[in-house]
């Protein structure tokens, strides 16, 4: 069953916590991965690959650069999840 927006944000929070050590409660829709969450361009790839596995979604490299905020990623996953 497809994940809800709430489940996706919670999942992304777990992933960002695991990769960048940011507290899960800091991972909110309006937060920028690079500016607010200490996720640089390489960590972002790790976040994306973990999100792909968790939500059964493919996020090609060309699309990764458009995912600036947690909201962008959540919307992308909602739209593309299998």
């Amino acid at each position: 069953m497809a994940a809800t927006q709430e489940e996706i944000v919670a999942g992304l929070a777990d992933i960002v916590n695991e990769i960048a050590g940011i507290p899960v409660e800091d991972v909110q829709l309006d937060k920028s991965f690079t500016d607010d969450l200490d996720v640089d361009s390489l960590s972002m790839v790790e976040v994306v690959v973990a999100a792909e596995e968790r939500f059964d979604v493919k996020i090609p490299d060309d699309d990764v650069k458009n995912l600036k905020t947690v909201g962008d990623a959540t919307e992308y996953i909602l739209k593309h999840q299998g």
């Binding site: 790839v45 994306v48 690959v49 490299d61 650069k65």
Partner: peptide, 12 residues
């Protein structure tokens, strides 16, 4: 090189 694409391929 395309850093992110190379990183993804190299790691995973």
């Amino acid at each position: 090189q395309e850093g992110q694409a190379v990183f993804r391929w190299a790691v995973f």
